[in-house]
Design a binder for these strands. Structure first.
Lengths: 326, 326
DNA sequence: TTGTATGCGTTATCAA
DNA sequence: TTGATAACGCATACAA
């Protein structure tokens, strides 16, 4: 008995056309899930954010925010939906996250050292979906890595400080190979110093990671130990903000006594007092490179590793003759 | 001929059980799209961000960022996937965005005045999916609105300034009914002044909207016009940052000459020099209220409008006896 | 507990 | 162009 026929067949009967035609005609309000069952295309990207910062009120690394914004924008232009997922560092992905057939590809964003991500990379590879990661390419990261020219950006920044006449330039940030991005920035710092005939001193290196408070403590420590310095180059803006704030609290003048330089160009940099000089990462270009690369992987087309150029942004915190106000 | 049977039937034949059982057994790696076709449940929420700020490098209102982070976190805990979409103010939703059956419900985030959103609200209502909006409830916003106690928060802030001995307290922000959230904050400001026997002066009201630069200009304008004031209460932290920066650039001391108070408690507030006092909105609680409310709408359960309590956070920018350092 | 038949709304294929 | 039918992988209802 056909009294309880499906709606689409009902419409077909009522209008006198086949239900195939009904489906074709109503092609604006289609059921995406059904379409996906048949077509095997999800047209969805997943952005996977592996979170490290503990602060509950600041759950995402601030550098990622404009990057995510750009990803959303560009993915939308390319016709992708974007699924965003926040993963705690401690989460067991294998059990609580089945990526299978949820997205055509995955963009992985994380700040921790790559060792911590090894098993997550393995999981992503096991799932089989194509994925890309923001950062520095590593041998066992099979797919595609996209990152900034960290060494060049840091070199530009420190060379600028040298050009201002600074001779005792501290570096706040990681330098070990477990953190390739920061290691590259440290290498750029060293190259600029060496090129200027300045020594690389351990006493001027604060081995801090991501948290602003670490930079505060590092500044305190250097000042308490009587270590002289006339500039601080920080591996991230967040660290630079902590350093600059503590320098001011300790009675030093920025930039008169100490120049401060960051890395990232967070939106706050121009709103600080003094405004913060920094090395800008182009998040728009990064988002395009990530998505275009992922698209290639999805379509089985060849991909090429990409390094995004950086741009030096000089604001008040540098001092010297080149002060430009934004 | 059954040579090309579906995989599940193959396994069924090999293991001697039915393909239904196979399906049940392999319930870890199911095809979500297929499941959704049958079950009619998407288990997905869509976060729709209507963007207003023009800055390309700051595409999302900074207040929304922790809110979105909390939404991602809490939605994940409740078993929802989250689809995030950035919509330009100018985008024609009807044509370029078919929400039908992509999500069980929609969370709408936007900062513009409600008049601008009228046709978007109509579209959302027409789609039929349940949706909630962050902000202030309005008659024609049929579903559910969730917001902070703007009036109370502003009242607390201004009363604190009065308690510090400030008598000429400026307000930077909107006050017109088209911007209900800011109107409520203005009303809290007025109530605190009136209660303290202080007049509400038009000269002390800078009618600015969202952009930091507007606050910079408003401060310039008041100073240029010779208007005296010893405190500035701003409708958002972004405005407070602009105001504070410009006060400092114009040679005034914060908080000695002028106290500055914001609203939101962005993560940067504690990193500014001086650190910024503000009215904290609890984005975690807001995210929970939005998602729980949306869940109720999805399940056809009754919902209640909710106002989230705010919390006064005193930092260096206030001055007075109550200075606490964060 | 395990097996079977059928429907979900689409796409793909072939026939008219 | 349009119509009929099969298939996608799962869920539901019911039978064994």
């Amino acid at each position: 008995m056909g009294t309880k026929r499906p709606p689409s067949l009902d419409i077909a009967a009522m209008t006198g056309v086949s239900h195939t035609t009904v489906s074709r005609a109503l092609n604006d309000k289609v059921d995406l899930s059904a379409r996906r069952v048949r077509s095997k295309k999800i047209h969805t990207l997943a952005v996977l954010i592996s979170e490290d910062l503990d602060q509950t009120d600041n759950p995402i690394n601030p550098f990622f925010l404009p990057l995510i914004g750009s990803i959303l924008k560009y993915a939308g232009q390319k016709g992708y939906e974007v699924l965003v997922s926040l993963q705690q560092q401690s989460d067991d992905w294998g059990t609580d996250y089945g990526f299978s057939r949820r997205a055509d590809g995955i963009i992985f964003l994380g700040c921790k050292d790559y060792e911590s991500y090894t098993h997550k990379f393995e999981y992503l590879n096991a799932v089989g979906d194509p994925w890309v990661v923001w950062g520095v390419d590593r041998p066992d990261c099979a797919k595609l890595c996209i990152g900034s020219d960290n060494e060049g950006g840091a070199y530009d920044a420190v060379r600028h400080l040298v050009g201002l006449g600074r001779t005792r330039i501290a570096y706040l940030g990681k330098s070990a190979p477990e953190h390739p991005e920061f290691k590259e920035r440290y290498e750029g710092y060293c190259r600029a110093l060496t090129e200027a005939g300045l020594p690389v001193e351990d006493a001027l290196h604060g081995d801090v990671f991501l948290e602003r408070e670490e930079a505060v403590a590092a500044v305190d420590s250097m000042l308490d130990d009587g270590i002289r310095f006339d500039a601080v180059f920080c591996a991230t803006d967040l660290l630079a903000m902590g350093a600059m704030q503590q320098l001011i609290r300790r009675g030093l003048r920025v930039p008169e006594d100490v120049s401060v330089m960051g890395f990232d160009d967070l939106w706050v940099c121009s709103s600080l007092s003094p405004s913060l000089s920094t090395v800008r990462q182009d998040t728009g270009a990064a988002a395009r490179a990530l998505i275009d690369g992922l698209s290639c992987l999805i379509e089985n087309e060849p991909v090429h590793l990409t390094r995004m150029p950086t741009q030096l942004v000089i604001r008040e915190s540098c001092g010297g003759l080149n002060i430009r106000r934004h």
